[in-house]
């Protein structure tokens, strides 16, 4: 099973893997915001966590359409499905999700503290936002896998996946941002929304791959 993880990580960092596309998009959005909002440092630091989360959410959705499509186009997906007696298909999907997250989304989390400086956020807020991103973004990948599996046969399914998946990611966004605010704004709690965020990730780690496996099994033609 880890061989699949290693293969997908290798693919994402080789030429054409697209691991950096998400980071570059993330960077572009965050760098643009201060120019659009203006030089109001208080306003920037107040909206900072929300902007970081929204940009990270959109960047997560960017590469999702290739999650299964690349495997379908070269026939690998057939063999992954064929081996589902040895490796439960949902676990295969989970492994692909983890590899996708490590290769394409983890760099976003690593870049987030740097970009937090652009938004004039204080160190505690930056740390909290990076932590919530680390815990929350896997949930987006897991939901996204279900969307990617449904749209696997569509040649330009990228936008469709985003539209399918975006409404389902709203709870993750809400609790991620409220936990980030909770760390800096005093009366607001940090721990409660953070724990709900962690619970969402665990819940979707089961539901997402199961749904994706079901869609893949019935999507072969």
């Amino acid at each position: 099973m880890w061989s699949l993880f290693l293969r997908d990580i290798r693919l994402s960092i080789r030429a054409g893997g697209g691991a950096l596309i998400g980071v570059i998009f993330f960077l572009a959005v965050i760098v643009t915001i201060p120019f659009g909002v203006g030089p109001d440092l208080n306003l920037l630091s107040r909206i900072g966590p929300a902007i970081l989360w929204i940009a990270a959410l959109l960047a997560c959705l960017l590469g999702l359409d290739r999650l299964f499509q690349a495997d379908r186009e070269d026939g690998s997906l057939d063999l992954l499905v064929l081996n589902s007696d040895r490796h439960i298909l949902a676990l295969t999907v989970l492994m692909k999700c983890l590899a996708h997250w490590t290769g394409s989304v983890l760099p976003l989390v690593v870049a987030a503290p740097l970009l937090g400086l652009f938004m004039n956020m204080e160190p505690l807020g930056i740390g909290a936002t990076a932590l919530t991103l680390l815990i929350g973004t896997p949930a987006i990948t897991f939901i996204g896998a279900a969307g990617a599996a449904v749209a696997v046969a569509l040649p330009r399914g990228g936008l469709l996946i985003s539209v399918l998946v975006l409404p389902l990611t709203i709870p993750v966004l809400i609790f991620g941002v409220s936990a980030s605010y909770g760390a800096v704004a005093n009366p607001a709690p940090f721990l409660q929304p953070f724990l709900i965020l962690a619970a969402l990730t665990l819940f979707l780690a089961v539901l997402g791959p199961l749904a994706a496996a079901l869609a893949l099994r019935h999507g072969t033609d």
């Binding site: 693919l11 070269d74 026939g75 057939d78 063999l79 064929l82």
Partner: peptide
């Protein structure tokens, strides 16, 4: 079963 289809199921980047 081994299934060898029209597609090679190999990655060109690897």
């Amino acid at each position: 079963s081994h299934y060898l289809g029209h597609l090679n199921a190999m990655k060109t980047a690897l």
